[in-house]
Simulated assay, not measured.
Amino acid sequence: MKKKFNTYLPAIDYKATKKEVEKTFEEYRMYLVTLPSDFLPKITPSYSQLPPSFTNEFHSSTEDAAIERIEFENARQRFINRIHEAVNSLKQDERFIIIKSFMDKDIGYDPDIYLELGIGKTRYYEIKGEAMLRLAFDLQIEVYKKKNEVKSA
């Protein structure tokens, strides 16, 4: 008697996965253009009615802001590098589409991009969908359908 293997692979929810990739690129663009002002040190004096404590700990809002900013910058740089590595792992046409669609300073429109690539509309959307799916797997942000959704679909 042959042994049957359980080869259940969860089904991908393509719409939700696409939204996750788009959200990730929105976050990417925000990281490129912003640095929150709450990471800046306070420049106004603050007074307290509590007596100062004389311990070995030195506590300064400037130091706290500097540490917080460094941690933010490190997290920001790791995130941006992760996006760049994922995009660089794509095929040439996929990379071109993703860069033009999400990463350029001026985001391109789909018709302009597929005309620039010299391919048809249908093929363009196939390539873009494959690229977004690859990115979702590389970035580990893919979304799976629940078991009860798979049976009914």
Rank of each mutant, 00 (worst) to 15 (best):
D64Y: 12
Y28T: 03
K4H: 08
I107G: 09
I119Q: 00
K4T: 08
F25L: 03
T34H: 07
A131F: 07
Y28D: 01
E68L: 08
P41I: 03
E116V: 04
K2P: 06
F58R: 07
R69L: 15
I12H: 03
Q77N: 14
I67F: 14
T24L: 13
F96P: 06
N74E: 13
T62D: 13
L50Q: 11
I113C: 06
E142S: 05
M30T: 11
H59Q: 12
L139H: 13
I113F: 04
A131V: 05
D106E: 15
K91Y: 13
R78D: 12
K121G: 00
K91R: 14
A66P: 02
E20Y: 00
Y8P: 01
V33A: 12
F79G: 00
M132G: 01
F58K: 11
V143R: 04
K18H: 07
D38C: 00
R76V: 02
E126V: 14
Q77A: 13
K23C: 03
K19E: 15
R76L: 01
K146T: 05
F96S: 12
I80H: 06
K15P: 10
Q140G: 06
D93G: 02
I12Y: 02
K147S: 09
T17C: 00
K145I: 01
T7A: 07
F58T: 00
F79V: 04
E126R: 15
Y124I: 04
I127A: 02
D93C: 00
K145T: 01
I113E: 10
F72C: 09
V21H: 10
K100A: 14
K121I: 04
S46P: 01
N81W: 09
I97F: 02
I97K: 03
L90A: 05
A65D: 10
E63M: 14
D13C: 11
E20S: 12
L133E: 14
A86N: 08
K18P: 00
S101H: 10
F58C: 00
K19W: 08
D13V: 03
E57P: 00
A86P: 05
T44E: 15
V143W: 01
K18M: 05
R78S: 06
D112I: 07
A11R: 15
K23V: 00
R95C: 01
K3E: 14
K151N: 03
M103A: 02
A16F: 02
L40K: 09
N74G: 03
Y28L: 03
K147Y: 11
F102M: 00
D138P: 01
H84G: 03
A75E: 15
E63H: 12
P36Q: 05
K121D: 08
I113R: 06
F54M: 11
Y114V: 00
T34F: 03
K146V: 02
K42E: 14
Y109V: 06
R76A: 11
E116G: 06
Y31E: 13
Q77C: 09
I127R: 02
R134P: 05
L32E: 13
N88A: 04
E73Q: 14
T62Q: 13
E68Y: 07
E142D: 12
